[in-house]
Simulated assay, not measured.
Amino acid sequence: MADPTPVIDDLRAESRELDLLVAELIPERWRLPTPAASWTIAHQIAHLAWTDRAALLAVTEPDAFQPLVEKALAAPGSFVDEGAEEGAALPPAGLLATWRAGRTALGEALLQAPPGARFPWYGPPMSAASMATARLMETWAHGQDVADALSVVRPPTDRLRHVVRLGVRTRDFAYGVRGLAPPHEEFRVELRAPSGEVWAYGPEDAEQRVTGPALDFCLLVTRRAHRADLALTAEGPDADRWLGIAQAFAGPPGTGRPRERTERPAPEAGGPGEEDGR
């Protein structure tokens, strides 16, 4: 049985890092646009707070969580935006306090969960460790949007190992969400961690292989960058196809980020486009 404590600790650290980016912002800066179309920094934090609340409900009151699933099924194209809009309307201080309280309560609930417990979610039921991993992935990805809006470069950390693992494990999901049949054989994935370590998954002799920096893989599977702007290499047609559709998050894939280099008519002109998906 996987001990959720390490990933919960990393989730808390990832949240604190993002908190430092927004805690001292003046109210006007909370309205800065981020790369996600129509979402400001306030929308990004509001979305995290909203999802933390949903996760807390799933962990502590599973029966009360079911209406949220029904709402999502009734309005799959708008329920995420509605949650973000509601929170983004709060004064920044209130939104920040809400996010802090919710993520703290969720962390405590996950630590206290009985061993082996599984909780309902918008996809398959999740263990405490899996729930914390998913929350870390979202915190990192939406934190990237906030950092981009503020023109801040965040040094990558080995907390990315959780996002990498989730990205590898959701390979077949990425095919399924597009109505495609996943390959039968396993892939070999070898990625260079920020620390220099190599994180490897799958059989060493696999014909289909993906290699490159772990950071780039995380940007790809969270659809925070265009594949053409990343230093990832695919060997084999199936691995190549996967890199074109990979995603580590539930729900529709959206359009992804445009390729930065081709969005600019000249090196000194233009700028990165916006993403339609979340």
Rank of each mutant, 00 (worst) to 15 (best):
D240V: 09
T104C: 10
A46H: 02
S78T: 15
G254E: 06
G123I: 05
R12H: 12
T139S: 08
T222Q: 03
L111S: 15
A109H: 08
R264Q: 05
D10Y: 05
V221K: 06
V198R: 10
R223W: 06
A97N: 08
V163A: 05
A37H: 10
A129L: 09
Y201L: 01
T262P: 01
E263I: 01
Y201D: 02
D238N: 13
L110C: 10
G107P: 06
L95G: 05
F217I: 14
A228M: 07
G212K: 00
D158H: 00
A46L: 06
A193M: 08
L166Q: 13
A75W: 08
G167K: 05
A88D: 02
A269H: 05
E275L: 08
L106K: 07
L180H: 09
G251H: 01
I41S: 00
A132N: 06
P237H: 06
E17G: 08
G273H: 12
P125H: 11
R171C: 06
L68D: 10
R53K: 07
L230I: 07
V168Y: 01
E204Y: 05
L11G: 02
V163R: 00
A129D: 15
A54Q: 09
L48T: 02
L68S: 07
E17A: 13
L111R: 15
A64L: 12
G77R: 12
A134I: 13
R264K: 09
P6I: 04
G102L: 07
V168T: 11
T170G: 08
I45M: 10
A266G: 02
T255L: 08
P91T: 07
R12L: 11
G179S: 07
G256P: 12
A248E: 00
M126C: 14
T170Q: 14
P182A: 13
P120E: 15
E17Q: 14
Y201R: 01
V69R: 09
G167F: 03
L220N: 06
P183R: 03
R165N: 06
R241Q: 15
V221A: 00
E28I: 05
A42G: 11
V7R: 00
A93G: 12
D238C: 08
A13C: 08
F173L: 15
I41V: 10
A266T: 04
S195K: 05
E275A: 14
P252S: 11
H47W: 02
A200P: 01
L219A: 09
L95K: 04
T157H: 04
R192P: 04
R261T: 11
F187M: 15
P265R: 13
D52A: 11
E186C: 04
G167N: 03
R261A: 11
D216M: 07
F173P: 04
T104G: 13
A149G: 01
R31Q: 12
A266H: 09
R135I: 06
E138P: 15
A193L: 02
P92V: 09
R161Q: 13
D3V: 11
L18S: 09
V177Q: 09
G244R: 10
E61P: 14
E28L: 05
D9Q: 12
S127P: 13
R53C: 02
Q247P: 05
E185P: 01
R118Y: 03
E70P: 07
R118E: 15
T98L: 12
M1P: 13
W99C: 03
P182Q: 06
R100E: 15
S15K: 12
D145Q: 13
L219Y: 13
V221C: 05
F119A: 01
G87W: 01
